[in-house]
Simulated scan of single mutants.
Amino acid sequence: MPVLDGIEATRRLVADGSPTRVLVLTTYDLDDLVHAALRHGAAGFVLKTTPVDRVVQGIELVADGA
């Protein structure tokens, strides 16, 4: 993302009171990033190497409020 990263975008969405729920999809398998994303309001975190059916499951869970 050329202007800001996904964690900052998530933080801004949450801070603005957006009802949008965020599922982070990333190539970075780093605990610090997972913790930062969740701390800033992400509802979930999925690696791009995750099988498609599991990504879909993650999207459905986040959309359902789980």
Rank of each mutant, 00 (worst) to 15 (best):
T50H: 09
V52L: 10
V46Y: 00
V46D: 00
A9L: 14
H35R: 14
R21E: 11
S18N: 06
R39W: 06
A15Y: 00
I59A: 09
L38F: 02
D29A: 13
V56E: 13
H40G: 05
V52G: 02
F45D: 00
D53R: 13
V55C: 07
L25G: 05
A42N: 03
V46M: 03
D5Q: 03
S18F: 01
E60A: 15
K48M: 08
V34K: 13
A66G: 10
A15V: 00
R54Y: 10
V56Y: 10
R12K: 11
L47Y: 01
D29K: 09
A15G: 00
L30H: 14
T26S: 08
G44D: 12
D16M: 05
D31K: 11
L47R: 02
D32G: 09
T50Y: 06
L25Q: 04
A42I: 03
L23A: 07
A66M: 13
D32F: 10
F45L: 05
I59P: 10
L47V: 02
T27L: 11
R12C: 06
R39C: 12
V24I: 13
P19V: 08
D53S: 12
T10G: 07
Q57P: 06
H35V: 15
T20M: 10
D16K: 02
V55G: 04
E60R: 15
G65T: 12
V3P: 03
H35K: 13
P2G: 14
V56N: 10
R11S: 12
